[in-house]
Design a protein around this nucleic acid. Structure first.
Length: 109
DNA sequence: CTCTTGACTGAGG
DNA sequence: GCCTCAGCCAAGA
């Protein structure tokens, strides 16, 4: 059965899956791409179920490039480990060169 | 229906 | 640049 792309949550998952390897984006960017620029919080809220999906939630951070959602991962530094595993530099929960690694769905899609 | 919570963001000081 | 406040929207109790 086809995924519920009509649901806000599913839309978030779909976009998150489109994030290329070694790239990151912000909740607001995804939200805006979905047409709900003010629903950035909903994006993060939706990610609560991301662990049951094939969604690379670790590639999604807040606008500052800070790993605000790392507490939702199993370990304490799991999110950082995943990012570093993709060649992304992370220091003190903050992504380095965030402006360069930032993946804008409007420009890339 | 009302109230609370939240992986956010933008504006103001 | 940092801190604080308010707005925003959806889901759960």
């Amino acid at each position: 059965m086809q995924p519920e792309t009509d649901n806000f949550f599913e839309k978030v998952y779909q976009v998150a899956k489109l994030i290329p390897y070694g790239r990151v984006t912000s909740y607001g960017a995804i939200a805006k791409y979905l047409g709900a620029a003010r629903s950035a919080r909903m994006v993060g809220y939706a990610m609560n179920g991301s662990h049951t999906k094939d969604v690379p939630a670790h590639r999604v951070v807040n606008r500052k490039g800070l790993l605000t959602g790392k507490h939702h991962f199993d370990g304490t530094n799991l999110m950082q480990q995943l990012l570093e595993s993709e060649g992304i530099e992370v220091v003190d929960n903050q992504i380095q060169n965030f402006d360069i690694l930032f993946w804008d769905p409007f420009k890339e899609l």
